[in-house]
């Protein structure tokens, strides 16, 4: 196979998105907030539409701020419903994201002829169009595909966030009480993480769609979790999986002539289920070990 520049750009962009999602998603998973990540990825939709309406473009700061804000509002809403209204947490998540997502879809339908944003794009993105969507400066020079730049910025920010706040994230994830005791703002870390997740969702939205972001947020870390217990290794394996998923997903989509984002999620699924099958004796093995220990003690 000869070198295909478009394929390279798509795979590169996909990998960067997958790595950014995976790094943040690993912490979501460890904090038992995987479904909150799912909720945020649905909930940013109205923010995207409103920001789109205000700024008139699918790119730029308005979009990121608008959607990031809605993501944080969704997080706050879930917390409020759980803690103040005293609704059970699964229901708070379900109600928050379905209502925001519904509002988003209604806005899109209302403004269908005013904005260039359709339901398909919401669902599975347009990563295939990345090489066509070029960033052209005012002087007319072609700088290359725009989404790729967004993905680079996102990746740099995600890596910076995780490495700068690595200690804080780790501590507040594994021992929130201790973190609070030594004066770490756990709420601050939480909102920071959620803010980053919202931003990543928005920035990858165009490429992979709102719903499949979840696949990239949760599935690679969950797969990695089956193989290692060390946080640094977990993050590394997640990143490697992200690249593999993007690479194989592209060729699967090419083969089946289908959505690339969907194919990436399917490949992630294959990795996940293979890992589960290979590791499915984890729990029974632990149980029998415990039993043996108990018998020895007795």
């Amino acid at each position: 196979m000869s070198f295909d520049q478009n394929a390279f750009i798509i795979i590169l962009t996909g990998s960067m998105i997958a790595i950014s999602c995976g790094l943040l998603g690993a912490f979501l998973m460890l904090r038992k907030m995987a479904m909150t990540g799912d909720a945020i990825s649905h909930a940013v939709l109205p923010g995207i539409v409103i920001a789109f309406l205000i700024s008139g473009s699918r790119h730029g700061l308005t979009m990121v701020i608008g959607a990031g804000l809605v993501g944080l509002i969704a997080t706050a809403c879930i917390e409020y419903l759980t803690q103040k209204v005293k609704l059970q947490s699964d229901a708070s998540i379900g109600i928050t994201f379905t209502s925001l997502f519904a509002i988003g879809i209604i806005l899109i339908t209302f403004l269908a002829n005013q904005i260039d944003l359709d339901q398909d794009c919401v669902l599975y993105g347009e990563i295939a169009y990345v090489p066509i969507d070029l960033w052209i400066t005012k002087a007319g020079t072609i700088m290359g595909p725009r989404t790729t730049y967004l993905a680079v910025i996102n990746l740099v920010l995600a890596i910076a966030f995780v490495s700068l706040f690595y200690k804080e994230l780790k501590l507040s994830t594994f021992d929130p009480e201790f973190a609070a005791t030594i004066g770490l703002s756990t709420a601050g870390v939480n909102y920071g993480l959620m803010g980053m997740v919202s931003y990543t969702t928005v920035s990858s939205f165009e490429a992979v769609g709102a719903i499949l972001v979840v696949a990239l947020l949760v599935v690679p870390p969950a797969t990695a979790f089956l193989w290692t217990k060390n946080l640094k290794k977990l993050l590394t394996v997640t990143a490697i999986l992200g690249v593999l998923i993007s690479f194989l997903g592209y060729y699967l989509a090419y083969l089946l002539n289908s959505s690339i984002a969907g194919a990436m999620a399917s490949v992630a699924g294959v990795f996940f289920f293979v890992s589960v099958t290979l590791n499915r004796h984890q729990i029974p093995r632990i149980k029998s070990k415990m039993r043996r220990l108990r018998e020895e003690m007795a």
Binding site: D38, I211, L212, L217, A265, S266, G269
Partner: peptide, 13 residues
Amino acid sequence: ASVLSIFFGVGIV
């Protein structure tokens, strides 16, 4: 979350 997104991804394909 994993099962949901994987199934949905396959559905989209």
